[in-house]
């Protein structure tokens, strides 16, 4: 995980590890102290090769925290592995992502 501050109150977090049960506690512990003071946080998940339910739940927990603390949090970009799970669990709107409707499901 690589955390950078492109500007004041801005935070870019690049995650290259798997977002799975084995990694998640460590990622959480690393990120938590860095979040203080961040107003605009971007999580770059483009390099995440594996993502499980624990990983997805962590993203949702971050999102819930951001919303309640008035922090702007975006997940951009998403790797295929993350996207697959997001679609499977249909949590696009919960994560503040643009809803991508799979073609086979038709319009809602």
């Amino acid at each position: 995980m690589d955390v950078s501050e492109p500007g004041a109150g801005e935070l870019t977090v690049v995650i290259s590890e798997d977002l799975c049960i084995y990694e998640i506690a460590q990622l959480h512990d690393q990120l938590l102290p860095r979040l203080a003071g961040g107003q605009k946080i971007q999580l770059d998940l483009g390099a995440v090769a594996e993502c499980d339910s624990a990983g997805l739940q962590w993203l949702l927990a971050l999102r819930a925290w951001a919303r309640s603390s008035g922090v702007t949090l975006s997940f951009e970009p998403l790797s295929d592995a993350v996207r697959e799970l997001v679609d499977l669990c249909q949590v696009q709107s919960l994560l503040g992502l643009q809803t991508v409707i799979p073609a086979d499901m038709g319009a809602c």
Partner: peptide
Amino acid sequence: VIYIADELPDDLADFDPE
């Protein structure tokens, strides 16, 4: 699929990711 996230703690300090 409706993801029920009601139980997620707002405070990340209370959140055990495992």
